[in-house]
């Protein structure tokens, strides 16, 4: 009886909000068809996939497809690299983007701001292959652009392609270079959303630029930052294969600081195309990401309920 009443109550509520529900409907349908329908296919991670037998009749092999990840003894290194790079990308990236968008929108002239923004936006459109080509042509020992500059000014160029220690810095810089302009857009839009009259009032009250930024702009950007963060941590175990693979390639002398899960998987499956193993890795990354996100979201919910995703 109670359940029935509950349903009736839901239906009544749904009827009351039917326009809002309808407004969400296209998106819901989209995610059903694009994300949820294929989802049961994750099961292939546990199968020896036979094209003719499909998802239901292919032989079940349990955890076998996950084994190659853990038998190598590399897992710790891979996890460490993948996570540290992601943390660096998230933190450094967001801080720089936030700082840059605040400074540009607060102080710079319109023309300077627009020009700088357009230019910094460009690297986002360069594919990883080209980025690696650029980096190689900048820093290779024999004839790199920077190497030539260093030598021209009497210095001694470091052999960066055999210096594993240099690569975390290089990779973070390259990532920053490529994503800053793009990432700034969000912060910039958020700043645009700040009520100018608040700024005006602060100015009248005698707040200087730094104070206004600290007291008004940064707090206003906090929700945006939190959301970006919550989205990013879901992919904490997912690496940007294109970036790492193209920059480092077969240079295994750099692997100690550059090998991430994706590149490892790629090398392991180089000569054996195996869909099931690919799915297994994806599943592993998703489950961990899901756990981290749930933890972070509930943490956020406790501190600032408004900022939580759900």
């Amino acid at each position: 009886m109670e359940a029935r009443a509950k349903i009736a109550w839901h239906v009544k509520k749904a009827a009351k909000y039917k326009t809002l529900l309808l407004m969400c409907l296209p998106a819901i349908i989209f995610f059903i068809f694009m994300s949820y329908v294929p989802l049961p296919g994750m099961w292939v991670a546990f199968l020896r996939f036979d094209y003719n037998k499909g998802l239901f009749k292919s032989p079940f092999v349990g955890w076998k497809n996950f084994e190659f990840l853990f038998t190598s003894g590399q897992m710790w290194l891979l996890l460490r690299n993948t996570i540290l790079y992601n943390v660096a990308f998230i933190l450094v990236g967001n801080v720089v983007q936030m700082a840059l968008s605040i400074l540009l929108s607060e102080v710079a002239s319109d023309r300077f701001r627009k020009t700088a923004q357009s230019i910094m936006f460009l690297p986002y459109f360069i594919s990883a292959v080209l980025v690696s080509l650029l980096v190689y042509n900048l820093i290779n020992y024999d004839y790199g652009f920077i190497s030539n500059l260093v030598r021209g000014s009497g210095g001694e160029m470091a052999k960066l392609y055999s210096m594993p220690k240099a690569w975390p810095v290089i990779i973070v810089l390259v990532n920053l270079w490529q994503t800053t302009g793009y990432g700034c857009i969000v912060y910039f839009a958020a700043i645009m959303g700040i009520d100018p009259s608040i700024m005006e009032a602060a100015r009248v009250d005698g707040a200087n630029g730094l104070q206004r930024i600290r007291r008004i702009t940064i707090p206003m950007l906090k929700p945006t930052f939190v959301i970006l963060l919550l989205f990013a941590v879901g992919g904490i175990l997912k690496g940007n294969f294109g970036l790492f693979y193209n920059l480092v390639g077969n240079n295994s002398s750099l692997f100690s600081t550059t090998d991430i899960i994706e590149t490892y998987v790629y090398r392991s499956m180089l000569n054996s195309f195996n869909f099931s193993q690919g799915s297994a890795v994806g599943l592993f990354q998703s489950v961990v990401g899901f756990g981290v996100v749930m933890a972070c979201n509930s943490l956020v919910k406790r501190i600032e309920p408004d900022y939580a995703l759900f």
């Binding site: 190659f68 190598s72 295994s252 692997f255 490892y264 392991s268 054996s272």
Partner: peptide, 18 residues
């Protein structure tokens, strides 16, 4: 031997270029 081959493949592609 598929798991072994995967690991061997990875080791080979790590050490052999060097």
């Amino acid at each position: 031997i598929s798991t072994e081959l995967d690991t061997i493949s990875n080791i080979y592609s790590t050490y052999m270029p060097i």
